[in-house]
């Protein structure tokens, strides 16, 4: 603790910005998939948009784990709460999305969108708390 952790703490807003970019890409590709396509896909452009959404979602899940671990190790109380909530909301959104893809029940798509709301609030709050 103390002097040696300063350089790690200065990395936290950079990690949060990367996670924010990934979550923004997930939202844009996801709402594009919702509005411009319909299951089952009939053209490769629709499948491209869906693949973009899934790729951004997997990247944001990985960076969510990184951010959670970093805030548990170097963060104060607020950052620990925000990191844990971010991890939980990404888990909710991911579980909803995977279940939607398995069952095509729109209620799980709704669950995915609500999980995204919490995750985005947490990561932007994290970014502006650390700068």
């Amino acid at each position: 603790m103390g002097e040696s952790n300063e350089k790690y703490i200065s990395l936290l807003p950079i990690l949060a910005s990367v996670e924010a970019i990934f979550l923004t890409g997930t939202f844009a590709a996801g709402i594009g998939t919702l509005l411009f396509t319909s299951f089952p896909f009939s053209s490769s452009l629709e499948a491209d948009m869906m693949s973009l959404h899934v790729s951004f979602a997997m990247l944001s899940a990985v960076f969510g784990i990184v951010l959670f671990t970093a805030s548990m190790k170097f963060g104060d109380r607020v950052l620990k709460i925000l990191g844990s909530l971010l991890f939980a909301f990404i888990g909710i959104a991911g579980a909803g999305g995977l279940t939607f893809y398995g069952t095509l029940d729109p209620s799980f798509s709704f669950m995915m969108s609500l999980g995204f709301f919490g995750a985005y609030f947490c990561v932007i709050g994290y970014l502006f708390y650390t700068i």
Partner: peptide
């Protein structure tokens, strides 16, 4: 949807920055 995302971004920023 994109406009909503911007509103949520600035809202979360204002809350946590002011705290």
């Amino acid at each position: 949807g994109i406009g909503f995302l911007g509103v949520l971004f600035t809202n979360a920023g204002v809350i946590l920055y002011a705290i």
